[in-house]
Design a protein around this nucleic acid. Sequence first.
DNA 1: AGCCAGGCTACCG
DNA 2: CGGTAGCATGGC
Length: 250
Amino acid sequence: MPARFSKRIRAAIERMACEYGPQGWWPIASEVQRFAPSNNPRRLEGYHPGEFDFPRTIAGRFEICCGAVLTQNTAWANVRHALEGLLVANALSAKRLLELPEEQLASVIRPAGYFNQKASYLRAVALWFQANDAMLVRSERSLFALETARPILLKVRGVGPETADAVLLYAYRLPTFVVDAYTMRVFGRLNVVDSQSSYEVVRSLLGDALRQRTLERTVEYYQEAHALIVEHAKRHHGRKSDATKDFLLD
DNA sequence: AGCCAGGCTACCG
DNA sequence: CGGTAGCATGGC
């Protein structure tokens, strides 16, 4: 019965892929330039289109975790400034971030907004990172690993479902689909979901529709699909809906 | 000058 | 359970 919308969902993603090309999420500014130079201008901001073997380092994974918290209800341009602040403050590792007094941490991430809340969240995430990163990298990636790690991550203060899924999908390449406000808007417009669908329902609906033959391919496809949805929504779906410009509805 | 941005917690009924 | 105020900066 959920297969009812699967075709529509997959067609929408495929169309976005053709229209927008490879996205290369999640951006990892501190890591990406070091590997494989390229002409792609987005690479300078940490995007790595067509390359799915990021992050490759513990620093890259921690940067994703921080970015996932900092971007909560915040434009990415502001997050970049905050991440750069962390880099300059030499606080882009769990240990060194935790050594920074919380008040100072807050002032460093000020451009990302909600800086007092987020300073507290970042500390909690850094503690989680110290306790879980090595294990997650070492253990075999599987549905079991995902279902084990996810509830633990969701208990961390400041980590809700979207932040957790972004960390698991992009930092640890575990096969979970990331649902955000854009996802709700885009697929709401396509009558695939409605405003009262819960996060979990939408996550499993899209996850089922977009699952691929292997775990590895599924992860890559989930990563790309989420980035494409954001790109599409930025172009066509303001908060004040304007379906007229949406080519998916043609 | 206002609206918006890659949400989450706490608290309400 | 679902609904909502509060959190805050920078860009357009």
